[in-house]
C-alpha cells in the first residue's frame, strides 16, 4: 500500500467519523429498539433493516473475494496479501488448538474463519454514517406531522417496496404509533449484529456444528459418555453386589459426583447458545446506544467511544470465532473416563 492510498484511507475514516458524529439524528432514536424494524416488503417477505445490511455485508465479502482472487499470484499484493494474512493467522490458531489434527482442521477452519470474516463488517457497519439518522417516515394518518430533527430525504411513492403496512411494522409499538401525532420514523440501516436474529442464527450454526462434530468424531456413545457419566457409579454398584466391599464407598460417592458434573456440563452445553447470542448482541447494541447517548449530550463527545466501539467490534468477532473453535475442540475431545479405558 503506497502513501497516497493510506492518506485516502485516513481521510475516509476521519470523514466517516465526522459525518457520523455531526449528522443530526432524530430525537426518537433516543429510544433505541431491540427489535429490528421492517423496512421492505418483497413478495410477502418482510425485510428488516438488519437483513438489508446483512446483504450489504455479503456483498462486501463477495467483492473482497473477487478482489483477492482475481489475479492470484505467487507474489501476493494488496487484497490477496491481506486475506492470506488473515487466513493464515486463523489457520495457525486452529492448528494450535487441535494440535495439528488435519481432519479437525479441515472441519473447523471454514466455520471459524467465516464467522470472523462475517462478523467484522457486521459489527463495524453500524459505525458508518447514515446508520441511525437515515430512515423512512411512515405517515399512517393524514394529520401526522414530521418528527423533530428528521429531514425526509425523498418522498417514497405509495407502491414502493419501502411501504410496509403498520400491522407488519414494529409489533411492540403498534398501539403507540396509532395514537401518535408524529409520523413513524424507521431507520433504514441497522448493524446485523445488533439484531438478535443474526446473533442467534450464528450461535445456532456454531452450536449445532459443535454437536455434529462431537458425534462424528467420538461416535454417538462416545460423545454421550461425556455428559452421562456412569463409569464409577456402575463399578461401585457392581462391587456392592459381588461382595468386594473395599473402596466401594468412595467409588459410589465419586460416581454420584461424576454423574452430577456430567449433567451440569449438559446444561452448560445448552446455555452456550444463549451466552453466544447475547454476548455479541449486547456488546454491539450497547455500543450503538452509548454512541447515540454521547452524541445527544455533546456533538464531539462520541469520538473516543467511536474508537472504543471499533475495537469492541473486531474483538467480539474474534471472540465469537475463537469460542466456536474452542467449543468444537472440546466437543471432539474424549471424556476423561473414556480415555483411561482406551
Amino acid at each position: 500500500m503506497n502513501r497516497q492510498r493510506i492518506i485516502w484511507l485516513v481521510i475516509f475514516l476521519v470523514g466517516a467519523a465526522a459525518l457520523k458524529v455531526l449528522l443530526p439524528f432524530p430525537q426518537e432514536q433516543l429510544h433505541p429498539s431491540v427489535v429490528p424494524e421492517p423496512v421492505m416488503l418483497i413478495g410477502g417477505f418482510v425485510v428488516t433493516n438488519s437483513l438489508l445490511i446483512t446483504l450489504v455485508v455479503d456483498l462486501l465479502l463477495i467483492l473482497t473475494v473477487i478482489g483477492a482472487t482475481r489475479r492470484l499470484s505467487l507474489v501476493p499484493g494488496g487484497l490477496q496479501n491481506a486475506m492470506e494474512i488473515t487466513l493464515e493467522a486463523i489457520m495457525r490458531l486452529v492448528r494450535q488448538t487441535v494440535s495439528g489434527d488435519e481432519k479437525r482442521i479441515r472441519w473447523f477452519f471454514p466455520f471459524v474463519i467465516t464467522i470472523f470474516l462475517f462478523l467484522v463488517p457486521a459489527n463495524l457497519l453500524g459505525l458508518m454514517p447514515g446508520f441511525g439518522p437515515l430512515g423512512i417516515l411512515h405517515y399512517d394518518r393524514p394529520d401526522q406531522h414530521t418528527p423533530q430533527g428528521v429531514t425526509p430525504l425523498l418522498d417514497l411513492p405509495a407502491s414502493s417496496v419501502f411501504q410496509v403496512p403498520p400491522e407488519l411494522r414494529a409489533v411492540a409499538q403498534q398501539e403507540e404509533a396509532k395514537t401518535s401525532s408524529e409520523a413513524e420514523f424507521v431507520p433504514l440501516f441497522r448493524a446485523p449484529s445488533s439484531d438478535l436474529n443474526t446473533t442467534l442464527a450464528l450461535a445456532l450454526v456454531s452450536w449445532v456444528m459443535t454437536q455434529f462434530f462431537g458425534f462424528r468424531h467420538l461416535g454417538v456413545l462416545g460423545y454421550l459418555r461425556k455428559y452421562f457419566v456412569f463409569d464409577k457409579l456402575r463399578r461401585g454398584i457392581g462391587g456392592l453386589f459381588s461382595g468386594k466391599t473395599k473402596g466401594v464407598g468412595g467409588m459410589l460417592v465419586f460416581g454420584v459426583i461424576d454423574f452430577a458434573v456430567g449433567i451440569l456440563e449438559l446444561i452448560s452445553e445448552f446455555s452456550k447458545v444463549i451466552s453466544f447470542t447475547f454476548r455479541l448482541f449486547g456488546n454491539i447494541f450497547a455500543g450503538e446506544v452509548v454512541l447515540l447517548v454521547m452524541a445527544f449530550l455533546f456533538p464531539l463527545l462520541p469520538l473516543p467511544f467511536y474508537g472504543l466501539e471499533t475495537l469492541v467490534g473486531v474483538i467480539q468477532a474474534f471472540i465469537f470465532a475463537i469460542l466456536t473453535l474452542v467449543f468444537m475442540t472440546g466437543a471432539t475431545t474424549p471424556a476423561h473416563g473414556a480415555e483411561e479405558h482406551h
Binding site: 429498539s33 431491540v34 427489535v35 429490528p36 417477505f45 418482510v46 428488516t48 437483513l51 446483512t54 446483504l55 455479503d58 465479502l61 471454514p110 466455520f111 467465516t114 462475517f118 411492540a172 446485523p192 439484531d195 438478535l196 436474529n197 443474526t198 442467534l200 442464527a201 450464528l202 445456532l204 450454526v205
Partner: peptide, 20 residues
C-alpha cells in the same frame, strides 16, 4: 419482544450457510 422471529432467523441461517 426481543424481535426474534422464525423467518428472519432462518433467513440469517441460510445466509450464513450460503456465505460459508
Amino acid at each position: 419482544k426481543l424481535g426474534v422471529s422464525l423467518p428472519w432467523l432462518i433467513a440469517q441461517i441460510i445466509n450464513f450457510v450460503i456465505l460459508l
